[in-house]
Design a protein around this nucleic acid. Structure first.
Lengths: 329, 329
DNA sequence: TTGAAAGCGCTAACAG
DNA sequence: CTGTTAGCGCTTTCAA
């Protein structure tokens, strides 16, 4: 059986296709009882509109979402909340992962353009402050609005939804320093990650303000588990900190694993703190005080900003939104 | 700036659009140097094909993927491997989550049909053996091939990629029974979940074969964390098992948490076993022997089967694929 | 309130 | 090897 199309319904209802089109998408433009009849027939035939045909003529009502990976629960939840927000507003989402590869990221953007998406929400691949991928100029030329997620890029006309990283660092620092630990290890992201550096700056602010005698060591790793684990293992063979602060969830996981391999008892010999929640910690009975961000909020703002940009056709005037986290013990 | 289209390239190259179309998608049908020239121009102009227009005429080369949630790492990895396999074969993926809701699932299917997808890979919302959603008949009528993922549904013409659940239960059972525990608790999925029941059957087979004196208790929960946690908490206030077997990763997490709340030391007072890997366990230094399934394999087969169905246009003749797990300590 | 015509960008079918 | 024609299903524009 072929797909039911507008003209099939039109034939049955004894009207033209355009009337059917109107009855289904702008019912106020069609006489009430015609409208009702058409909708009933559409229902019965199980009509499903062809977005390909629609998107060829008009806006697709679809937004593209790209994140580096869904294995990281932070992005998984962000995606979930974005999809939910978008659907509520009548937009579909096409979702891609860039898999930490610049090439795949570029492809994903191209594919989204291929699908005539109305706008893009993207968490770019790199934390590097100087990462400026080629596709930004393409998107700008095509007037496709972009909302950056979490990772900032220097581009004057692009708005974003970010975390208040300095604040996160500061709050977590205050929390840690309450304990008068002798030695604390901070495991940061890469040296040219703006996110990592801001979080670090916040921590340092807290430390300076507190005038504590705690010895604070800093390791620069990156935002993945593996490197953090290795570097913390090295560190632990020389020092024994009372607490370790991971500047994102992946780092904290790496630090935990390193500590386990040195036979420390988690949460007793060494206490852990994290920016980003370690959602599985509670299952293992380990308490990891953290900065939790309201991810629903995150998705909501990203979608709202994007849709405003789409519907006002002013990609370039929207402000950034900064989301502040809260300490959770 | 408007999007570059075939006719723009055609004009510049002094040929017709159809030649450009051929040069870009079936270059062997165009004279070599014309072809080269066209490709160069396309490159320079940054041509990105319009899939909406293409999909209107011909196959979209896009497959739809629906899973209940990406918060569950099993599905997250499955999606990842599906996307990777599909891209390798020249297919795009449109990805949706059904968020454990029948309505959202139905919508997702409709949206996919709207996008003219060539086929669908779906892990259905429910474990219930008798769940038969309405969209299956729609998809059948439209000749859209479907490959089921993980969760089986009784529909003669639909093939799937499943885990060998009996085998998983059996292998894990053997592993557990090596230890001569006095009392073991099995936390299963819901009573009418085929997956859960098969795993349970496998465990029982192992137990019968072993003639051990181990007392085996069974709790029927469901495949989510919360209920498992609550039921195990109740159980633990009456009995103290030496080991707990979770029949999927979410259940095991719930069981862990319940045990923590009863102040048992994980992996010492109570040992844990799981079907599906608990990927985070290693970060916490807890060893949870499990049945691990090769998720790459899973994605690969799902995509391969689907594409065979699409390209042969015989949706109904493909066999099921059963993936067997391995014990990982 | 409804309809007819035209066209979105691309490609299948057929000619040349 | 290349071009012409036509049409995919829908909506915009203009007219009735």
């Amino acid at each position: 059986m072929k797909k039911v199309k507008l003209s099939d319904i039109a034939k049955m209802a004894g009207v033209s296709s355009i009337t059917v089109s109107r009855a289904l998408s702008t019912p106020e433009k069609v006489k009430a009882d015609t409208c009702e009849k058409i909708q009933k027939i559409a229902q019965e035939l199980g009509y499903i509109p062809n977005l390909m045909a629609k998107g060829l003529k008009s806006r697709s009502n679809t937004i593209g979402v790209i994140v580096p990976t869904i294995i990281n629960p932070f992005f998984a939840s962000a995606v979930k909340s974005i999809i939910r927000s978008a659907n509520k507003t009548g937009y579909n989402c096409l979702f891609f992962t860039s898999d930490e590869s610049q090439k795949i990221e570029q492809n994903a953007v191209n594919t989204l353009i291929s699908y005539n998406i109305d706008g893009i929400i993207i968490a770019v691949i790199s934390e590097d402050e100087n990462y400026t991928p080629a596709y930004f100029s393409t998107l700008e030329k095509l007037h496709v609005p972009v909302v950056l997620l979490d990772r900032h890029i220097e581009a004057p006309h692009i708005c974003g939804v970010y975390l208040d990283n300095v604040d996160s660092g500061y709050k977590l620092g205050k929390e840690v320093l309450l304990n008068n630990y002798q030695r604390v290890l901070i495991v940061s992201g890469s040296a040219n990650s703006k996110v990592a550096n801001s979080r670090l700056a916040g921590l340092k602010m807290a430390a300076e303000e507190t005038h504590s005698n705690t010895i604070i060591d800093v390791i620069k790793a990156d935002f993945n588990t593996q490197l953090a684990k290795e570097l913390v293992q090295d560190y632990l063979s020389q020092h024994k900190p009372d607490a370790i602060i991971g500047l994102n969830n992946q780092i904290t996981l790496g630090a935990l694993e390193a500590s386990v391999s040195h036979h420390y008892q988690l949460g007793a010999d060494i206490h852990f703190y994290s920016i980003d929640e370690i959602t599985t910690a509670k299952h293992f009975g380990i308490s990891i005080p953290c900065i939790r961000h309201d991810v629903e909020e995150f998705g909501y703002h990203a979608v709202t900003q994007l849709i405003r940009a789409i519907e006002s056709e002013q990609c370039d005037k929207l402000s950034d939104i900064i989301i502040r986290g809260t300490v959770v013990k």
